[in-house]
Design a protein around this nucleic acid. Sequence first.
DNA 1: CGTGGCTCCTGTTAGC
DNA 2: TGCTAACAGGAGCCAC
Length: 272
Amino acid sequence: MPELPEVEATRRSFAADIAAAQILAVRLGKPLRWPLGCPPQDLVGQTVQQVRRRGKYLLLDLNAGLLLLHLGMSGSLRFAPSFPAPGAHDHFDLTTSQGTLRLHDPRRFGAVVAAAGEDDPRAQKLLGGLGMEPLDPASFTWERFAAGLHASRAPIKAVLLAGKLVVGVGNIYASEVLFASRIHPATPACAIRPVKARRLFAAIGQVMARAVEQGGTTLRDFSNAQGMAGHFQHAVQVYGRAGQPCHRCGQPIDLLRQGQRSTYYCPRCQKI
DNA sequence: CGTGGCTCCTGTTAGC
DNA sequence: TGCTAACAGGAGCCAC
């Protein structure tokens, strides 16, 4: 579910509400992808200073540490004054003086990890190799992007998903930005012509920004921490549209599988 | 070292 | 209707 726009929409939907809140209790459900890494009691009494995002990770800055949250494939957060008893897929509750943050994650690919700070090896292991932030002009520059493309012979779709060059682009948005820039998903990154590379660079920034404005994409069940669905699914051009006509040329959208993931593209508009 | 494949887990859907 | 298999929005790890 959650790619950068969904994670950012989630962040914005509760960051102000939880700021300066004191942690009163921590409840863990079934194991997530990684263990929390400290006794839950160690978090009690700490204060949540702010909520940041790095790639698809949410970073809760505590007065004496850092809490990293990842929503994996099926995770979602909710922030509310109180909750009913936890259901089978509610695996983490952070009760604070200003409300409770609850992680719901049926597939449990998500994670909550405590670290001393961003330089803590536990945090570095997760954040260390991450690429540029597409919504941050200071980070996401054409020069670095072009150099990154030049350095890889892997299919551009795989390069986008890997998150080493640019973060936050998942399976939905990879299809969308490649369609927007008219690049075939299997094109080796280093073989993309400058004109198309320029278009891709621009499309990543624009599509991600637009999707955040729209509150993310709700294909099935995504909602932000206030329970509100996103709207970007109405702007989706190719993802999930196999067999339906291309919005640009009318040709049926096709689907190809790359590394167990499907990519949607227009065979006429997106040539290698 | 770069690259591609496998894997974790559970719910939903397509197909017989 | 019921069973089975394929597939799903992520990404670390392991072999080549």
